[in-house]
Design a protein around this nucleic acid. Sequence first.
DNA 1: GTGAAAGCGCTAACAG
DNA 2: CTGTTAGCGCTTTCAC
Lengths: 334, 334
Amino acid sequence: MKVTIYDVAKTAGVSIATVSKVINNTGKISEKTRNKVLDVTKKLEYYPNVMASALMGKKTKTIGLIIPDLANPFFSELARHTENRANELEYNLITCSTDYLPERESKYISLLKQKKVDGFILASGFEDLKKVEDLMKEDIPVAVVARDFPMFPVNAVAIDDFMGGYQATSYLINLGHKNIGIIARDVWSNRERIRGYKQALEDNNLDAPNYFEYAEETNIICGKKIAHNYLNNNNAPTAIFACNDLLTIGAIKAAKENGILVPEQLSVVGFDNTMIATITDPPLTTIGQPIDIMGREVMDLMVGMIEHNKQDKIRITLVPELVERNSTSKIDLG
Amino acid sequence: MKVTIYDVAKTAGVSIATVSKVINNTGKISEKTRNKVLDVTKKLEYYPNVMASALMGKKTKTIGLIIPDLANPFFSELARHTENRANELEYNLITCSTDYLPERESKYISLLKQKKVDGFILASGFEDLKKVEDLMKEDIPVAVVARDFPMFPVNAVAIDDFMGGYQATSYLINLGHKNIGIIARDVWSNRERIRGYKQALEDNNLDAPNYFEYAEETNIICGKKIAHNYLNNNNAPTAIFACNDLLTIGAIKAAKENGILVPEQLSVVGFDNTMIATITDPPLTTIGQPIDIMGREVMDLMVGMIEHNKQDKIRITLVPELVERNSTSKIDLG
DNA sequence: GTGAAAGCGCTAACAG
DNA sequence: CTGTTAGCGCTTTCAC
């Protein structure tokens, strides 16, 4: 049957308190007894019951990761890198996809609170910051990643989305484009990228096209739909900046369906630089996010709060980087 | 502070035993007290402590999902669909990526056992079935998905990989190809697909090429490397069947680097039909796995074992389906 | 129908 | 240094 601390204590000829102490490296124990206990521990294949110690207020070594959609490569890569770091630090992740639905966000948070996760890493784009504040009021460690910085102090890691938008647009402008469309979703990060886009346009005395619409969802279909609208406009753009790689692919598909060549007749720049950016036709010029670093940093922040009770909050802003591939070209002056 | 069962009992004017009974719908409780307790429960926002009830042998409503790599679209899609069903059934998933490393598999399993997960869903391709047997001996529910059926009874859902390999190869043969290479990894599912491939070849009195090598890893790089080797052979294939979409993309990249046109000069068929199969150039003709059904079915199997203590094991074999896109063509007789 | 009491496996004072 | 003991929050007999 399940071997408990009592079994270990008995066969080692000590009390359970002693066993507990050597397991947790607390109190003073003589080398002799420590070794004896450790031996028995091995021999009996004793593994402490996490539930029992959690009941006593100890950590569960489990963290909740709330993201919008695990099937989106950006988030699956982020989850993977976060998990990697978690594993190094002896933590496990309960990963939950919300589909950007506030109900699911709330449900998951309250569920995981019951399960006594040690903290939450929030990547979901939900705008309802009250949930985050509530968590913090309850003294539950929270860190946000790949999203906006709330108005109140919370550990966070994200990239400079404004800068990313600025980079993408400037790059297109330098290529000679003057009519640049943008495809984005109505979430914070995308709105920042739009800001960057507009700033770059303004800095170059260019106007944004008179058409614009938000994508309903973050997927290829929506990207395609919107690109179609733009392309069928009588003032069609020569370049499109799409705020993530999935949307970008949709734009390319739309171009193909209209017999428009990418990059010869239409330049397209994406955002994220996930694996899929390398496999499309043409491969995507895109703004790269350091997903691996983001995952690692946010995990480290989390563990800092949990294990070292770090109270001072910090924000880590990573810098995006333009990755040149073949979906963009100088404007065709023909 | 944290509201416990005692708080509810006190303000409802009943004993904790009564509260416990109404929460769990056990024993006989009068409508009156039941409603009173339920009211207080709402009012106080009482959420039972999962740890405490787990300590008493109740379920944790948490399942371990062990997969090779969350960043591989096949697995992230599988994880997503599994999670979706889990959510419907009020379960959470702790997802762990093993990178096909036996050490990590063992580590995760023992970690999650300590955390008292209610069961394990195993998708990792690890060959060490002893771990699975051990789990079952300890009466921990186990279900395997997207991998081989072990020699002992265990709940499982998978597709007919042999059939998939047969389909892919037959399709190529019907297109007129006689020299068909195969790219695969040395894991069970891939070996089955190879069997199907060989059978189809044999049934059509065709020989497999004299070259063959396993891919070291499941990624684009490895697929490309091997395709290069095949293509530079003096008996180069006119078609390649690659055992997953990532490998397939590698093959296409290799062809491009050799100036070989796909599908005109080289037909390529993949396996999985993940999202990426639709975005490559050309879009992939590939053997589709019903990933959504697999995720749902394995979750249902799992919950059947946990909640209804179903002892009889079943195997669900799903049928793959060829999805035609543009990476294949009739052999060029020119 | 309802409640008192005995744990589940472990940690944390507090004695010794 | 080591052991005794009192819980953590909940479930479950077993009386009443």
